[in-house]
Design a protein around this nucleic acid. Structure first.
Lengths: 227, 227
DNA sequence: GGAGGGATTTGATACCGATCAATCAAGACC
DNA sequence: GGTCTTGATTGATCGGTATCAAATCCCTCC
C-alpha cells in the first residue's frame, strides 16, 4: 500500500465529480480536500473490517470496492459495490460505532480517506457539507432498497436483465456494453453465485443477449425489458 | 381518515422519543412540530404510492406501516416495516423526486406528516435538524444493509431465529416475547411467504421455541444463537 | 505470440422456499 | 356465546439457485 497526499489528474477529476463533493462550494471543498489522504491499494486488500471502530470513511477514485458481510461458516454476502466517485461508510459519521461490514478492493484501487471526527466537526458548522452528507447517504439508501426489492421480486435472469438495461442508453433497439469489472463481482452484486450468473446470461441468449468476455451485446433492448 | 392538529398524550410521548426528534433542542422541536399534521388511518390504507411526487415524509406514532414495491404481475416485496417512532421517506428530502415504493398501514395507525419543502428549508438553516436527518437516514441504511445480508446469508429458520433474538433480552436462558403485529407482516419483513414463516417456526420447535398466537417462548436463548 | 493460471462455463445433484389447495384456529361482531 | 370472516397451518408439488466437480476459456505476463 502506497499512501500520499498527492492526486493524479485523473483521480482528481473523479473526486470533483463525485456526488458527495460535486455540489459543494469552493471553501467547503478545500477544507474537505485538505484533510483527506490518498492511498493506492492492490487487489483483494481489506480497507475495513467488521467490528473495527469506524474512524474513517472513503471515496473510491479508481477501481471497485466490495462491501460484504461474513457468516460464521465464512460464506460471504455482498451488500454493495462502490464504483469510482462513490463513498462508503460515511453513514457512520454520527453513530460513533464500529464498521458493520468488511470492505475489500476488487482490483487495484485508489481511495480517498476522510477522518470521521474531522468531517463530523465540519458538518456541524457547514450546512452545505451536512447537505452533501444527507445526499450521499440517501443515495445509498435508495440503492439498498432497490437491491432488496430486486432480490425479492426477480429471478436471476431478470436481475441480470435489469442490470444490463440500467447500463444501456435508454433509446435504441440494440446496444453494446462493456462490464467494468469481473463477472464474479457482478454475481455478488446481484446476490448470485458465479455459476448462476453464467446460467442467467446463457438463458438470456434466447432474447438476443450475447456475451463474450466483458462485452455484452443486446440485440433488442425492448425485448429485454419484457423479461 | 381523520386529520387533525392535535396529539393524544400517548402519541406525543412516542413522537418525543422518536430517534428523529429525540436529540433536538426545544426551538427546533417547536418549529418542526408546528408544521406537522396528524392523521389517523384505518388498516390497509395507502399512505403513499410508487411514482407519486414526494411532497411529504412521515413519522409513525401508532401502528405499523409497510413499505413495499410491486412487480408488473402484482407481486409485493416488502422493503421495510416502520414501527412507532420511526420515520419513512425522509431520505427524499433533497432529491426532489417521486416515491420509489408504496406505503400502507398494516393496521389502524396514527402518523405525523411533514411537508418536504418546509423541512428542507429548516434543515438548511438549522444544523441540529440536518444532523437529526443524517441520523434518521443512516439508521435506515443500516437496517436495509442488515436486511440484504440476512436475506443472502441465512435460511428462513435462521432469519426467524435472528428476529426472535433481536427482541429477546440479551441475558437469561429462557424468554418470552409477544409479536407486536400479525405473522404475515413478520413474514414479509423477513422476505418469506407466510407458509414459510409458519414452517420456520415449527422447525424451531426442536430448539425449544414454542409459538401460540402472538406469544413466542424460547426455552434456551443460547441454543437459538447457534442455529 | 505462447504458456500459465485464474476466471468462467457446463453438468449433475440437492436443498430451499414459493405456490396452490385444503384444513384449522382465532378474532370480531352481533 | 355463536356465527362468520380472516389469518395461520399443513401437505404436496414445482421451480430456482446453491453446491461440487470438471472442462474450457480468457487474460496476463513473459
Amino acid at each position: 500500500m502506497n499512501s500520499s497526499l498527492k492526486l493524479s489528474n485523473r483521480d482528481r477529476a473523479v473526486l470533483m465529480k463525485a456526488p458527495f463533493l460535486a455540489g459543494l462550494g469552493n471553501s467547503a471543498l478545500v477544507r474537505l480536500m485538505s484533510m483527506m489522504t490518498i492511498s493506492t491499494l492492490p487487489a483483494r486488500k481489506f480497507v475495513m473490517r467488521e467490528g473495527e471502530t469506524a474512524d474513517a470513511f472513503y471515496c473510491v477514485l479508481n477501481g471497485y470496492v466490495r462491501l460484504f458481510r461474513l457468516s460464521r461458516e465464512g460464506r460471504e454476502a455482498d451488500i454493495m459495490v462502490c464504483a469510482p466517485g462513490e463513498t462508503f461508510a460515511e453513514h457512520l459519521l454520527f453513530s460513533n460505532d464500529v464498521y458493520s461490514c468488511n470492505a475489500q478492493t476488487a482490483e487495484p484501487a485508489t481511495l480517498a480517506r476522510f477522518d470521521m471526527q474531522a468531517v463530523r466537526d465540519l458538518a456541524q458548522q457547514d450546512p452545505e457539507i451536512a447537505k452533501a452528507l444527507i445526499s450521499a447517504i440517501s443515495r445509498h439508501l435508495v440503492g439498498t432498497m432497490d437491491c432488496i426489492a430486486n432480490d425479492r421480486l426477480f429471478t436471476a435472469p431478470q436481475r441480470v436483465a435489469n442490470y444490463i438495461l440500467s447500463r444501456c442508453p435508454a433509446d435504441g433497439s440494440s446496444a453494446s456494453i462493456r462490464l467494468p469489472f469481473q463477472k464474479s463481482l457482478l454475481a455478488g452484486m446481484l446476490g448470485l453465485a458465479p455459476e448462476a450468473l453464467s446460467r442467467a446470461f446463457s438463458s438470456l441468449r434466447r432474447v438476443g443477449v450475447t456475451v463474450r468476455g466483458r462485452i455484452i451485446q443486446v440485440g433488442d433492448v425492448q425485448a429485454l425489458r419484457n423479461i
